[in-house]
């Protein structure tokens, strides 16, 4: 008793000096009462979906059109939870007389989310932007083996990847955007020169040529516009832009024209 009271007395003294007796008690009651009148912050999850920030680490989506089977993700993964199978295919020469090229074709891409520790190293390390974080989180299974998700599921999750948040004011432009714009500008210049040349050579075909010429390279034009509009800074990252598999030699072809 004496020990406890000696511990209790110093704590009481400053309280008595501070204000009216019982003001601390009243303050405690006021806090709880005020909180009761405010709206609670509870997320009503199963009834309403939570609003997750765009950088949430929910699940990993695979944008398999970008994947070159370089295996960097599988090798960097600390948990060894990424499984990749592939084979080589020979592509006929792009130009007549050229030589055949070989390229990797993805056969299997699976992530075992029972092993995954959501470190995001695979996404960081992917040089071709084929892996993305998605805020999607409702993929619980009743069997642990069903947590190994194959490429079709991973590709489906790609649709849930949100647009990245806009860059800060005055931030450096993303490298991809700058490169895409450079290529587009170059292509536009070439197209303009072609058109002028065609106009000089065949003035009679004036009506047909301008309609036909720009159609040969619609992609650089589109990329150019996309890169310049401020809301679309990181446009090349978005999956809906490149739905068709990107041919490896696309850039060279565009530049040659």
């Amino acid at each position: 008793m004496s020990h406890a009271s000696s511990a209790g007395t110093p704590a009481e003294r400053p309280g008595a000096r501070r204000g009216v007796f019982g003001s601390g008690l009243a303050k405690g009651l006021a806090v709880t009462l005020r909180t009761m009148t405010r709206r609670s912050v509870t997320e009503h999850y199963p009834d309403t979906q939570p609003e997750l920030p765009p950088r949430s680490r929910g699940v990993i989506g695979l944008f398999e059109e970008n994947c070159t089977v370089c295996m960097l993700c599988a090798r960097e993964c600390p948990d060894w939870c990424i499984y990749i199978d592939s084979h080589k295919e020979t592509v006929p020469p792009a130009a007549p007389g050229g030589r055949e090229r070989s390229r990797n074709v993805l056969d299997r891409f699976a992530i075992d989310f029972a092993l995954c520790m959501y470190c995001g190293i695979c996404i960081e390390v992917c040089p071709f932007d084929a892996l993305f974080w998605s805020p999607e989180f409702e993929y619980a299974e009743t069997d642990i083996r069903e947590l190994t998700h194959e490429r079709d599921t991973l590709r489906e999750w790609m649709w849930t990847v949100p647009e990245p948040p806009p860059l800060d004011e005055g931030a450096e432009e993303a490298k991809e955007v700058a490169a895409a714009r450079k290529a587009a500008d170059k292509a536009a210049q070439v197209a303009e020169a072609d058109m002028l040349a065609a106009h000089r050579e065949h003035p009679a075909e004036e009506t047909a040529a301008p309609a036909g010429q720009p159609q040969r390279n619609p992609d650089p034009e589109a990329t150019d516009q996309g890169a310049r509009s401020p809301g679309d800074r990181n446009a090349p990252r978005r999956p809906d832009r490149d739905e068709a598999p990107r041919a490896p030699d696309q850039d060279t072809r565009g530049g040659a024209e």
């Binding site: 709880t32 009462l33 909180t35 009761m36 609670s40 912050v41």
Partner: peptide, 13 residues
């Protein structure tokens, strides 16, 4: 319910 709301929760729903 009162305790929940006093703690910024909603209690049983």
């Amino acid at each position: 319910k009162v305790m929940a709301h006093m703690q910024g929760r909603v209690g049983p729903m």
